[in-house]
């Protein structure tokens, strides 16, 4: 970098700084008012008390967080973490070979496959979840077909179960896993894979000793990108889950709109946000140092 004396540098850099803040300000203000401020309100409400008829009494208390220790909430949090973790794992297992396959295709076909992966990702999530209801419900497509093929005599209970929720999560977020994995695998010099092979590595060693370490940032990115929305999922458990498949997202919605316990709902939201933020820290820690320092002057 070219370090010019401060006396010369000060005036142009000062001008460009004020110009950039002028451009930034409206957008920054918008995000601050309609994202940061609301989060601050949630935090404030999570530290207040519930009024008798559902309102918020501005009396400081940590009771809401203490209430979260109740086994019922613990179970729902645990179940959410479990389902989100399982969905992440399944996406990784299914997504890695898929991403690897795409990354090794000729460039034109790569582009086609990537578009095919991205299309569901931008297709209405509600509708895609509904498609599984249509397939899985008692009178649904799968049961109808299986009965007509005489493979089963009575319809199976497929919908409204944890398995259905898991399926819905994997289905919904698989593209989030494939895209960063693809980006990471595509960057690997093919000669490295050949080198491992030339040096007597079998398929498993190649995967464990070369592919995984080299794609670690992509793996972490994919896992975080699947885990975060899975953990906060609302529609999937709401539509595909049974009475016992409630996840944190549903619990929050329930506390707000049904039980009208805003302080408790807010405390739940804050805890959910903290889990999300900590998984993001893991993500940043796993990124290669060059990428992290790129923002530096």
């Amino acid at each position: 970098m070219n370090h010019s004396p401060p006396s010369i540098a000060s005036s142009p850099s000062g001008r460009s700084c004020s110009k950039s803040s002028g451009l930034l300000l409206p957008g920054l203000l918008w995000t601050t008012v309609f994202c940061l401020l609301p989060i601050a309100v949630v935090l404030a409400v999570s530290l207040a008390t519930r009024g008798t008829y559902g309102g918020v009494l501005w009396e400081f208390s940590l009771d809401n967080y203490r209430d979260l220790l109740h086994p019922l909430y613990g179970r729902i949090f645990g179940q959410s973490l479990l389902l989100a973790g399982a969905a992440t794992g399944l996406c990784l297992v299914l997504g890695f070979p898929l991403a690897y396959y795409i990354a090794r295709l000729p460039p034109r076909r790569q582009a086609l496959w990537l578009v095919l992966i991205m299309i569901p990702f931008w297709t209405n999530f509600l509708v895609r979840t509904y498609a599984w209801m249509f397939i899985l419900r008692t009178e649904g497509l799968l049961n109808t077909v299986l009965i007509q093929l005489h493979l089963i005599s009575a319809p199976l209970d497929l919908l409204y179960s944890n398995q259905a929720v898991l399926l819905g999560l994997v289905y919904g977020y698989l593209p989030f896993m494939v895209l960063p994995l693809y980006a990471a695998i595509e960057r690997i010099d093919p000669a490295l894979i050949e080198a491992a092979w030339d040096l007597y590595a079998d398929r498993w060693s190649l995967f464990r000793r070369v592919l995984i370490p080299l794609t670690k940032p992509g793996i972490v990115a994919g896992c975080v990108l699947v885990f975060i929305p899975s953990l906060g999922a609302y529609l999937t458990p709401d539509l595909l889950g049974g009475a016992r498949s409630m996840m944190v997202g549903n619990l929050i919605q329930h506390e707000y709109l049904v039980a009208r316990d805003w302080p408790l709902g807010s405390a739940l939201s804050i805890v959910l946000m903290l889990i999300v933020m900590s998984s993001l820290l893991w993500y940043f820690a796993a990124q290669p140092p060059q990428a992290r320092e790129r923002g530096e002057p």
Binding site: D189, A191, L192, E194, A195, A196, W197, D198, L199, Y200, A201, D202, V210, L214
Partner: peptide, 16 residues
């Protein structure tokens, strides 16, 4: 390749 008694020095070196 992983069963052949040959080893290659790659043009780009391909060091891990």
């Amino acid at each position: 390749p992983n069963r052949r008694p040959v080893n290659l020095v790659f043009q780009s070196y391909a060091l891990f």
